[in-house]
Simulated assay, not measured.
Amino acid sequence: MTAVLQPPLTPHPLLRLSLAPHSGLPHHIDGAWWPHSYDLLAELPRLLAGLPRTWGHIAGVTVNGATWPATPGRMLVLDQVVRLRRSTATSAPHTVCLLAPNRGRWDLLVVPPDTPQDTAEQLMAAAAVGGV
């Protein structure tokens, strides 16, 4: 397992994240994230910084191994260690799973970075209302 220290964030366009409204019922998809690249070491800190505080500290992130390039076993994000896992499941190639101990699990649709804007916006809007 390798630990990677995350350099300070460089200026980038805004975080592209759309979340489903909070309810007592579980969602299949809790929202959508449209990263700017498949560089998880650059994209993940922005995602985690933009999540609702009520989600708590995200301690584990699972990404699809076929979609994302190799990742370290853990990384330092916002002064906290986040464990990274790669899944080989073919059932959810475009999702990321976020785990917060004693808080919950959230699954986000990952809109591929090279998706045209109009298509990406439609996917994100559908995910925010549970239509994906």
Rank of each mutant, 00 (worst) to 15 (best):
T2Q: 13
M1A: 12
V96P: 10
L44M: 10
V110Y: 00
A127M: 07
A59I: 01
P35L: 02
P93L: 09
T95W: 10
W33T: 04
T71H: 08
A92V: 06
T119V: 14
L15A: 06
G65F: 12
R85W: 00
R105W: 02
S91N: 12
A89F: 10
T54I: 05
D118V: 13
R105Y: 02
P72V: 10
A59L: 09
V77N: 06
G60K: 05
D39P: 04
W106M: 12
S91A: 15
T115Q: 12
E121S: 03
M75T: 09
G73F: 01
L48M: 01
P69F: 03
L17M: 13
A3N: 11
I58E: 12
L15R: 05
A59V: 04
G56S: 01
P93F: 10
G50I: 09
A42M: 09
S18L: 06
L123F: 07
L99S: 05
R74N: 11
P45Q: 06
D107E: 15
H27N: 13
N102W: 00
L19Q: 03
R86V: 00
G104D: 04
A66R: 04
G73M: 01
W68F: 15
V82S: 14
G130R: 13
W34Y: 11
W33I: 00
R16Y: 07
V81A: 09
A120W: 03
P45C: 08
R74G: 02
G65A: 09
C97K: 12
R74P: 00
A120T: 15
P11R: 01
P52A: 03
A127N: 12
T54N: 07
A49H: 05
M1R: 00
Q117I: 09
A59S: 15
L40C: 11
Q80H: 01
P113M: 15
R74M: 14
A92L: 07
L99K: 01
T115W: 14
H36F: 01
M75V: 05
T115A: 11
T90F: 03
T2L: 04
A3P: 10
L51C: 10
M75F: 02
H28G: 10
P93H: 10
H28W: 08
G60W: 07
